[in-house]
């Protein structure tokens, strides 16, 4: 079978390139076979990696469908008495499900604010030189690198003094500290990929800046905007330290509710697992929409 396919492969190349190619043909197919082996090996490696990657998450999912007695009675890969009781508890109790609503609210607020301010700024950085542009860019970047722990106490006092403590907008603004610089950085990368001639042509055609920006430029970089929105969502969603410090009751994020309720009720493992699973779902939903651009976004639009 292999024999016949190699001769079949080498025939057309011999016809095309003459006799010199026929001598090389067996070497070529040997290399091809090696390449095919390499593909198979890398596919195997990939599957192995994915299994190891997903195993801890599967374990959480598995646990969320078990009762506490089953969890503590022994290990099993599938729940014996499949139960939705843990999820019912979360969806039936406002102190639980409000956590998800609170988190979503401040994450969306943060996403909107970050995008609105970052869009014009990223355009400025990608198109113009101005006094202090490099310093400004570095300063922004340094905020992305600032440890939230440093800002914990001042944030608490700042937002308390202006009466924003325990509101969604306080968390949204606090998360701007790292999300706005990130948004500017990613958008700048995407915008620099758009040729400058487009801007110039539009201005010659009589477009004003705002009209050009909204009608022409934004549609051009919409995948970049999608990816930026995704990243703002992601980093705001996973952050706990600031969100927990700036809220007490009204705007408490789900992540904080998880830590508190669990310690109070003496480790309700099943409930903890169910709550954890529910925090993973929103991220999986949003990544689906940007799946083709997300890799470029992780490179901050700079590939």
């Amino acid at each position: 079978m292999t024999q016949s396919s190699t001769t079949h492969d080498s025939k057309p190349s011999a016809a095309k390139y003459g006799t010199a190619e026929t001598i090389q043909a067996p070497v070529y197919s040997h290399a091809e076979r090696k390449a095919r082996n390499a593909t198979r090996r890398s596919r195997l490696g990939m599957v192995l990696y994915l299994v190891l990657l997903l195993l801890p998450i599967y374990w959480l999912l598995n646990m969320s469908f078990k009762t506490n007695t089953e969890i503590l009675s022994g290990l099993s890969f599938f729940p014996e008495n499949f139960t939705l009781e843990n999820y019912a508890k979360i969806f039936g109790d406002p102190t639980w499900y409000m956590g998800y609503i609170n988190s979503t609210l401040y994450v969306v607020m943060n996403m909107v604010i970050s995008l609105l301010v970052a869009l014009p700024a990223a355009y400025a950085f990608s198109r113009y030189r101005f006094v202090g542009d490099k310093h400004m860019f570095f300063w922004l970047l340094s905020n992305r690198m600032a440890p939230p722990a440093v800002f914990l106490l001042p944030f608490f006092q700042l937002y308390s003094s202006v009466g924003l403590f325990d509101t969604h907008i306080a968390v949204a603004l606090a998360h701007c500290l790292f999300n706005v610089p990130l948004a500017v950085w990613i958008l700048e990368g995407f915008m620099s990929g758009v040729p400058r001639e487009i801007d110039e042509t539009a201005y010659i055609d009589g477009y004003s800046f705002p009209k050009f920006f909204v009608r022409i430029f934004i549609p051009l970089i919409r995948s970049g905007i999608g990816v930026t929105a995704f990243f703002c969502f992601m980093f705001s969603w996973v952050e706990l330290l600031l969100a927990r410090t700036l809220t007490s009751v009204e705007a408490k994020p789900i992540a904080a509710i998880m830590t508190r309720t669990v310690s109070a009720s003496g480790m309700d493992w099943g409930l903890l697992a169910a709550a954890g699973v529910l925090t993973i779902i929103p991220g999986m939903l949003v990544i689906y929409f940007v799946r083709n651009h997300v890799a470029k976004g992780f490179a901050l639009g700079r590939v």
């Binding site: 990657l53 969603w237 789900i254 992540a255 954890g276 925090t279």
Partner: peptide, 11 residues
């Protein structure tokens, strides 16, 4: 592959 990145850090 991206899933672990989307999980809240305390989770």
């Amino acid at each position: 592959v991206a899933i672990p990145l989307l999980i809240p850090w305390n989770v």
